[in-house]
């Protein structure tokens, strides 16, 4: 009897967990007819939020790639004192509550913050602007990219870098022609994770950038703004984000499966990918 209890217990627990995770997602799409959900997406509060979200997430993403890639390469390839401390600091925002990120950003860039006087002297007011949204997103999402990028760079065989150098390529050319192409898949995965995290950013944004429709109100903030007055609109935005996240996740998984089979077939047959 006890023999059967264990697998039974596993099955029951898994079913409960699965149902618990799935039910809210299902509820988003079934509570009201799909047609009405789609109609809600035409409301200005939704379209404004889409524009704000797309703009800020893309800019944040560009900044993350621009600064995060060299930082990750440095951390992956150079050994210097304090390196592991630097890696830990990069990863810290991952485990930090978003509210702490928000208060930290205010304390640094707010009007009375660390850099506040300097910024207002320059005529810049960061909090409650789209720049603030970008900063909040970048702060919270960049560690996901940088961490993944470090792993991707570390996986590039250093002998290939040496070979490139002895063939007359400088460090920059070696990076562009050897390291980047070989780390490409890992970097793309990191970028996708950071993008998804950035798109969902809520806590730090609402504290540091507020929730002004058409300026700083991103999709998650719009859900929060609408859910007590217009539950259907909030549901519609929720459905939209579920779809976007699911597409990201699935494409990430497909890409990784492709990469894995690509790397095994490297030793068996020519992968027929474009050069």
């Amino acid at each position: 009897m006890t023999r059967r209890l264990f697998p039974l217990g596993l099955g029951v627990s898994a079913t409960i967990a699965g149902a618990f995770l799935l039910l809210p997602l299902v509820a988003i799409f079934t509570r009201v007819p799909l047609g009405r959900l789609v109609d809600q997406l035409g409301r200005s509060v939704v379209t404004d939020a889409i524009v704000v979200s797309v703009e800020t997430t893309l800019i944040a993403q560009a900044l993350i790639l621009l600064f995060g890639t060299p930082a990750a390469y440095l951390l992956a390839t150079r050994r210097f004192p304090g390196r592991s401390l630097a890696v830990t600091l990069v990863e810290l925002p991952l485990v930090l509550p978003p509210a702490v990120a928000g208060i930290g950003l205010l304390a640094a860039f707010g009007r009375v913050g660390l850099l506040g006087p300097t910024l207002s002297f320059l005529g810049w007011q960061v909090p409650f602007t789209q720049a603030a949204v970008v900063m909040a997103v970048a702060f919270v999402a960049s560690p996901l990219y940088v961490r993944q990028a470090i792993t991707a760079f570390e996986a590039v065989d250093p002998v290939l870098v040496d070979a490139s150098r002895t063939l007359g390529a400088g460090e920059a050319r070696t990076f562009a022609r050897i390291v980047l192409p070989l780390a490409k898949a890992g970097l793309a995965a990191g970028a996708a994770l950071a993008f998804a995290r950035g798109l969902g950013e809520f806590g730090a944004t609402i504290m540091f950038a507020g929730s002004l429709q058409g300026r700083t109100q991103t999709l998650p903030l719009a859900i929060y703004a609408e859910f007590d007055s217009n539950f259907d609109t909030a549901l519609a935005i929720g459905g939209l984000l579920v779809v976007v996240s699911a597409v990201l996740l699935v494409s990430l998984k497909l890409r990784f499966r492709w990469k894995r089979s690509g790397s095994t077939s490297r030793f068996l047959a020519a992968p027929s990918t474009s050069s």
């Binding site: 065989d157 290939l160 070979a163 063939l167």
Partner: peptide, 22 residues
């Protein structure tokens, strides 16, 4: 001098061919 400024041809033990290039 940096490796790229020395006129050497180095053939590595496992050849170190670039796997993503033809």
């Amino acid at each position: 001098l940096d490796p790229d400024r020395r006129a050497v041809g180095l053939v590595f033990q496992e050849y170190a061919l670039f796997p993503h290039l033809t």
